[in-house]
């Protein structure tokens, strides 16, 4: 088990050593509604913190997902191509988007822990 961090844009990243797994939060999937397609970055793509990492399409609209930290994509979740609704069913586990090799771990310091993120979500209701 690694350490999980959250962004104010409702992404999560679970960091284990130099690598991290990225997804959107359960709150984000509730806001998106039924997910019908996820446009994931190719392996090897270099992402910069707060830059576009993926696009998630719901029935009503396309929404950008940003990289919580900078890194290189080492794997995208192939299961989402066949079953994008995994994002709705399991946003914070099976519906992960991509795995990154982090290039600047200092960036993690600016992210929230779960308690801080839950507080942020509570304030948005």
């Amino acid at each position: 088990m690694g350490t999980r961090y959250f962004t104010k844009d409702h992404e999560w990243i679970e960091v284990d050593g130099d690598n991290g797994t990225v997804g959107v939060t359960n709150y984000a999937q509730e806001q998106l509604g039924d997910v019908v397609f996820v446009d994931l970055p190719a392996k090897g793509k270099k992402l910069t913190q707060k830059g576009e990492a993926a696009v998630v399409e719901s029935v009503k609209a396309a929404s950008e997902v940003y990289a919580p930290v900078s890194g290189e994509v080492i794997e995208s979740n192939a299961a989402l191509a066949a079953n994008p609704a995994l994002v709705n069913a399991s946003a914070e586990k099976d519906g992960w988007f991509m795995k990154l090799k982090l290039t600047n771990k200092d960036e993690l310091k600016g992210l929230m822990d779960k308690a801080a993120y839950d507080k942020l979500v509570a304030s948005q209701h």
Partner: peptide, 12 residues
């Protein structure tokens, strides 16, 4: 209302 709790997919 853009959607109800069922969501667009189920409503459709």
């Amino acid at each position: 209302p853009v959607q109800f709790p069922d969501g667009i997919l189920r409503e459709h």
